[in-house]
Measured scan of single mutants.
Amino acid sequence: HSHMSHTQVIELERKFSHQKYLSAPERAHLAKNLKLTETQVKIWFQNRRYKTKRKQLSSEL
Rank of each mutant, 00 (worst) to 15 (best):
N33T: 14
F16V: 01
H1Y: 09
L57H: 08
F45Y: 03
I10C: 15
R49T: 01
K53P: 09
I43T: 06
Q46S: 06
L12T: 04
R27C: 06
F16P: 03
E13Y: 05
L36C: 05
R49K: 03
S23Y: 06
Q40W: 03
V41L: 04
E60W: 08
Q8A: 05
H3R: 09
K35D: 13
R49I: 05
T52L: 14
Q40C: 08
H6L: 14
S58P: 15
L12A: 01
H3V: 08
Y21T: 04
N47F: 13
L36A: 01
K51G: 10
S2G: 13
Q56P: 11
L22S: 00
E26P: 00
N47T: 09
M4P: 05
F16S: 02
K42V: 05
K55S: 11
Q19M: 07
E38R: 03
R27W: 06
I43L: 10
K42Q: 09
I10F: 09
Q19L: 10
H1I: 08
T7A: 15
Q8P: 01
E60Q: 12
S5Q: 04
T52Y: 14
S23G: 04
A24Q: 12
L12Y: 02
T7I: 09
A28P: 00
P25N: 12
L12Q: 01
K51I: 11
H6A: 12
S23W: 03
K51H: 12
R27K: 04
F16M: 02
R27T: 10
Q19S: 12
Q40A: 05
K51Y: 11
F45N: 00
H18W: 05
R14I: 05
S58A: 10
S2F: 14
S23A: 05
E38W: 04
R14F: 11
T37F: 03
R49D: 01
K32I: 09
S23E: 03
K20E: 07
I10S: 11
H6S: 08
I10H: 11
I43G: 04
L36D: 00
Q46I: 11
K51F: 09
P25M: 14
N47Y: 14
V41M: 02
A24V: 07
E38H: 04
H1L: 10
S2I: 11
K42M: 10
H3A: 10
K35E: 07
K32T: 06
Q8Y: 03
T37G: 02
K20D: 02
K35C: 15
L30M: 05
Q46V: 08
V9E: 09
K53N: 10
A31R: 01
V41C: 04
R14K: 12
H29S: 13
V9P: 01
F45W: 10
Q19C: 15
T37N: 04
L61S: 13
T37P: 03
Q19P: 03
N33E: 14
H6Y: 10
H6I: 13
S17A: 11
L22R: 00
E11I: 06
K42P: 00
L57T: 09
K15W: 13
S5H: 04
T39E: 14
M4T: 02
T7D: 11
P25R: 12
L61H: 13
L22A: 01
H18I: 10
L36H: 02
A28Y: 05
L12W: 02
S2M: 12
Y21P: 01
A31V: 01
R14D: 04
S2K: 12
W44L: 02
K51T: 08
S5V: 03
Q19T: 11
E38G: 02
T7Y: 14
S17P: 02
W44F: 04
E26H: 03
H1M: 10
E13L: 09
H18Q: 10
E26Y: 02
V9Q: 08
Q8K: 05
H6T: 07
T52A: 15
L34P: 05
E11N: 03
K15N: 06
H29L: 14
Q19Y: 07
H29T: 13
T52D: 15
W44Y: 03
K20M: 06
E60N: 09
Y50H: 13
H29N: 11
L30D: 01
K20T: 05
F16D: 01
F45R: 00
H29P: 01
T39Y: 11
H18K: 13
N33C: 15
K55D: 15
Q56R: 11
Q56D: 10
M4L: 09
V41Q: 00
F16R: 03
Q8E: 02
N47S: 07
